[in-house]
């Protein structure tokens, strides 16, 4: 059910564990779905021996895509007006990611009521890996 402005307050939040023990296979699955086959994400030999990283790591866009579910499960399908993210830290195989979204503003616009959110995704060490924000259409 779509969200109602009257049911929301600034400061309301939702939190969820979105992926536990991220696998290299899921990273490869995202490479196939998105078309981004960068060996930094898909090729352990290249990532470690050529690029000098400890292992492959997830596409920032995979983390952004995983995090989107927290928002769409809350605001409803097709309700996002905007979704932005900064990739703060890398996400590695084995990571467990949790995201938290919080209402930062409720406002009336020419197109109707809108809720603004901030969103943060953290890994199992408590480090923020993604920091973002979103806006969604809500019902009155």
């Amino acid at each position: 059910m779509p969200l109602k402005m009257s049911d929301l307050s600034v400061g309301d939040s939702r939190q969820e564990t979105l992926v536990e023990d991220l696998t290299r296979t899921q990273i490869v699955q995202y490479a196939g779905a998105s078309g981004d086959y960068n060996p930094l994400h898909t090729d352990e030999v290249f990532a470690t021996q050529v690029a000098g990283y400890p292992s492959v790591f997830a596409h920032g866009m995979l983390t952004m895509g995983i995090t989107a579910r927290l928002l769409t499960d809350w605001v409803g399908d097709g309700r996002l007006l905007r979704y932005g993210a900064r990739f703060v830290k890398q996400v590695w195989p084995g990571d467990t990611l949790s995201a938290r979204a919080e209402v930062t503003a409720l406002r009336d616009t020419d197109e109707g009521p809108v809720a603004d959110f901030k969103v943060e995704t953290t890994n199992q060490h408590g480090d923020v890996v993604l920091a973002g924000s979103a806006s969604a259409r809500v019902d009155r």
């Binding site: 779905a33 078309g35 895509g65 399908d77 097709g78």
Partner: peptide, 17 residues
């Protein structure tokens, strides 16, 4: 409400294909 299958929010990234 959307009435049909839709794409997830970051789907346009796959335009790389």
């Amino acid at each position: 409400e959307v009435g049909s299958v839709i794409a997830p929010p970051t789907f346009v990234q796959s335009s790389a294909q």
